[in-house]
Design a protein around this nucleic acid. Structure first.
Lengths: 149, 149
DNA sequence: TTCTTATTGCAATTAAGTCTCAATATCATT
DNA sequence: AATGATATTGAGACTTAATTGCAATAAGAA
């Protein structure tokens, strides 16, 4: 069973790039919190651990992690660009609460199959897809229903 | 049959906002080119027409057009935030070619229904959704297949 | 250990988007 | 048509995210 770190190291080797201590720290840190994150969060986390990796290095490492298939940019939910770990995870889509920001992950086989069908109909070769549904989670909907009108 | 401009005017009136000449120019210009656009394109277009509307005003008008249901932010495809006209258009999703940038719009009733079902299962109240599939269009796939390995 | 080359951090820079504020335009009312 | 309350505008300063150039440094193959 290969780890995320090993996968990243192999990816770098295949591109003749170096597995530096900064890159090790970045990937370790990302995989130590199992949720969506943005650059600032990652930077802060590293700083609190006493690992001063510069923002520039973080910005330069993110595209490598994406190319290596370890993380992906998430839907542009609010304002900031954020990322999520996709290593050893099944593909999934998102329900995003526009009130509290909660993210519910789901996977629906039938939707996946239908997407493939749509692609075939248009002679389109899919590489990646994203489905995001924005709305209100159960709790927030209850709250808001009370307030409005 | 109501026009986009009328709908916008009514929306503004309902919010006790003013239908200024700048806002008229902006909506007219957006609806004169029937495709996805970004702020810079809109700004340039207005400037070439001899209508100098400031960037600040454009940035302030965009959220009003979104709230009024006239445009929507498109998937964050490349780098820039872009928008598309949704007035008098059926809801649709996108196939986006990552080589040439072509956008194919599609609508699939079954996918829509399944999304509703997923929301019900999670007691989630959907407001809006976006499905974008990135990949290669027919032409680009043919080209690339020749080049790679 | 040596040496080539990638990488880093810093600080300057670019770019998108927001904000402030005085001047102005809108539009309901007179 | 004139008035007046208030929303809106443009200019430019400002904020924040992200990128870049460059000298110093680290990786890792030989």
């Amino acid at each position: 069973m290969i780890t995320a770190e090993q996968k990243f190291e192999e990816f770098l080797k295949s591109k003749e790039l170096k597995y530096t201590s900064e890159r090790k720290l970045i990937i370790k840190t990302i995989f130590s919190f199992n949720k969506h994150f943005d650059i600032e969060e990652l930077f802060e986390r590293l700083r609190k651990q006493g690992n001063n990796v510069s923002r520039a290095t973080i910005y330069r490492t993110i595209p490598l992690l994406i190319q290596g298939g370890l993380i992906t940019e998430t839907l542009h939910c609010q304002d900031k660009t954020s990322y999520e770990n996709i290593f050893n995870k099944e593909h999934h889509d998102h329900l995003v609460c526009i009130n509290c920001g909660k993210i519910i992950e789901f996977y629906n086989e039938k939707i996946e199959k239908l997407q493939e069908e749509v692609c075939r109909q248009h002679n389109f070769v899919p590489i990646e897809h994203r489905l995001g549904i924005k709305g209100y989670c159960e709790d927030c909907y209850k709250k808001i229903k009370g307030e409005v009108k």
